[in-house]
Amino acid sequence: MTSSSTPSRKALSKIACNRLQKELAEWQVGPPAGFKYKVSDNLQRWVIEVGGAEGTLYAGETYQLQVDFPEHYPMEAPQVIFLNPAPMHPHIYSNGHICLDILYDSWSPAMTVSSVCISILSMLSSSPAKQRPADNDRYVRNCRNGRSPKETRWWFHDDKV
């Protein structure tokens, strides 16, 4: 459903390619704890398995992150969503969209897939309750035609979770 949410995607620039190859090589040497890269030949779309951290609400559960890279990565943020089923979390919508500032306005080109993954896991781990965001239904309805979360104007209101 959400996997086709990148209309008219442009191929990676040479700079983006170099950088992603380097990131992948570093990932293979030392992946962030709790994550597993699902091997594919598509450098522009990574699928990553996330294991819920021990001692948190998500312990023992596994989810899949899909990371799509834009033409001008890392100047532009990647698009990161959870594949169905998305974890129940106050900042994760049922269509997989994640409300996390570093994926949008606060992106910086010094961040990497690895650092983004760690941020997402940390967000999951600090969740106080397994529940959807309050505006989940309305938001998901508005995204019906496979809109990218990067086109949403996010309002980052909660700095605790």
């Binding site: 306005d105 910086s108 010094a110 505006d135 508005n142 949403t152 996010w154 309002w155 980052f156």
Partner: peptide, 25 residues
């Protein structure tokens, strides 16, 4: 003017910072 679209604070700040950058680190 979609109802769920709200301009975030950082965006406003960002626009004010014309001809400025921020250290990626």
């Amino acid at each position: 003017t979609g109802e769920e679209l709200r301009l975030s604070n950082s965006d406003k700040l960002y626009n004010a910072n014309h001809h400025k950058g921020f250290c990626p680190v």
